[in-house]
Design a binder for these strands. Sequence first.
DNA 1: ATACTTAATAGTAATTATTACTAAATAAGA
DNA 2: TCTTATTTAGTAATAATTACTATTAAGTAT
Lengths: 126, 126
Amino acid sequence: MSIKRNTLQKQMIFDAVRELNIHATAEQVYDYVSVKNPFISKATVYRNLSQMAETGELFNAGALSGATHYDHNTHDHYHFICKECNAVFDVDGDFPDMTNIVKKSGEFEVTDCNMSFSGLCHKCKV
Amino acid sequence: MSIKRNTLQKQMIFDAVRELNIHATAEQVYDYVSVKNPFISKATVYRNLSQMAETGELFNAGALSGATHYDHNTHDHYHFICKECNAVFDVDGDFPDMTNIVKKSGEFEVTDCNMSFSGLCHKCKV
DNA sequence: ATACTTAATAGTAATTATTACTAAATAAGA
DNA sequence: TCTTATTTAGTAATAATTACTATTAAGTAT
């Protein structure tokens, strides 16, 4: 198991993902947290982010643009990434339950479904 | 534009992805091609793979396990990756057109949809 | 509240995946 | 065949992430 102690660093890292609210990468979280705690280690940021993604406290939105993006919104939803500016957006819409379609085949033991769309965002499509 | 010359290296790299038939990574392609051509450069493998993914000759199945996986199957389909052994499988099933649902919202100019499921494969779920 | 135990941290080195660079080789057209 | 610009090999550089280790500090027991 991971996360047996609730450190101040962990709390700051979790808060950063929520406050940034941009599907932040480890680097972005590090920059944000560094303002309040200039002595935090980058390794601590990476370790806590991946641990919280494992426990479900955060959601690993995948390596949408090279680096892994983390999301404080942990309920089922999907993402759109702009090929131009690399910004990540939540996608609204009524999607059927994909996981169930795969589960029915019985071939795999499915635990997660990660769907992402890409193209140009409202700003970049002009 | 990319790919203006049809080199022997490019052909070998394309064939490797098809012959391996395992959603190979650049490293796996390099190892496979190196047997026939011990002097091929790893940079050549990376460059050709990403170029062929750009032109549509190959499909970029995403960084499912750290490294980018390439697929010779370029028509719409989705993948399952085993969290245990990192093997990538094609997922069969009748999926509705996701891209269209997002397109209707009009918020983004959608060009691609990448969906992957994860969990345990038949071998690892015992 | 104090002491103890062990997990977590800071700081840095190492690793992995990938891209950048450059001189030499070569595919494709004139 | 000659020309020319693209591609290659080989290597250096970069980006993202993990590994390592001495030190610090949560959480529990005293």
